[in-house]
Design a protein around this nucleic acid. Structure first.
Ligand SMILES: [Mn+2]
Ligand SMILES: [Mn+2]
Ligand SMILES: [Zn+2]
Ligand SMILES: [Zn+2]
Lengths: 134, 134
DNA sequence: TAAGTAAAAATAATTATTATCTAAGCTGAG
DNA sequence: CTCAGCTTAGATAATAATTATTTTTACTTA
């Protein structure tokens, strides 16, 4: 994926810092502000949390990334892809994607409730396969 | 419901402040820290946010109440009842309960993923019936 | 090149949350 | 009943998290 054009599509300058944020997110999948900071500071030693927050907000508003509010932790950020659910391990703290047919679920709930629904946040918490053997 | 015995069941003292917190939550359904504070201060003018946070944490740990992390707002708190999903209106900000068979959903996801799941957070966002007519 | 713009950097300010300390209230042993 | 022990509210301070402001740098283009 070409992040330069992704940013330009949203009328945002493709600065090296922003490209690195997106690249880190691509590698990490789901990452919180501190994880992001400790990684990006390696290539941009002078960057500050303020710059990071600023860029996260800008990219959130442009719908390039999304913010995942999870129980018991700081919010995590990820690149926007197809809508999906999340699996959380309460022991090791891992968070992984779960492809799930959110569309039909949303339609069902829309009918049932009378709401005109646009999005869903579906988080399932428990023990991942590894953590079950301990 | 008798909040005195509810608290005692969890080995917590049934102080007037805690009882009032629970009573406000019962009336309000879903309420954030500021809403809670502005209500409770009417009956307990000397209470502070610190006391409020302290008691929320205690009751969260005892599983008397739960914390709902919603997009774009401060977390809301509610009494623990049967597991359910939530409907969020992006226009008026309302948050209401949606009874939904979370059990079968959890079972499906457990099978599919290999996780041993204990709980789910299901939030649907969109427009409530009222807000659709504007 | 000079002007205009957008973003990074540096810093300050604000807000949100947690920690510490003291005093008050309840409880149960003697 | 009374005192010691324990829990909590209240008061306050400290920390953490986020946002705002200002200055500097870099890029674009006329
Ligand atoms: Mn994801
Ligand atoms: Mn609810
Ligand atoms: Zn795990
Ligand atoms: Zn509405």
């Amino acid at each position: 994926m070409n992040y330069v054009s992704l940013l330009k599509q949203h009328n945002l300058k493709a600065t090296p810092q922003r490209l690195e944020i997106l690249s880190i997110m691509h590698q990490s999948g789901h990452i919180d502000i501190d994880g992001l900071f400790s990684k990006i500071i390696q290539s941009f030693p002078s960057i500050s949390l303020a710059t990071l927050y600023k860029n996260l907000h800008i990219m959130l508003n442009s719908n390039i990334i999304l913010e995942l509010k999870l129980p018991n932790t700081k919010p995590k950020y990820e690149l926007i892809q197809a809508p999906h659910a999340h699996l959380l391990c309460q022991k090791c703290g891992s968070c992984i994607d779960l492809s799930l047919d959110t569309d039909t679920l949303i339609k069902e709930v829309s009918q049932k409730s009378g709401y005109k629904l646009h999005e869903s946040t579906l988080i399932f918490s428990g023990l991942c396969p590894q953590c079950q053997n301990h």
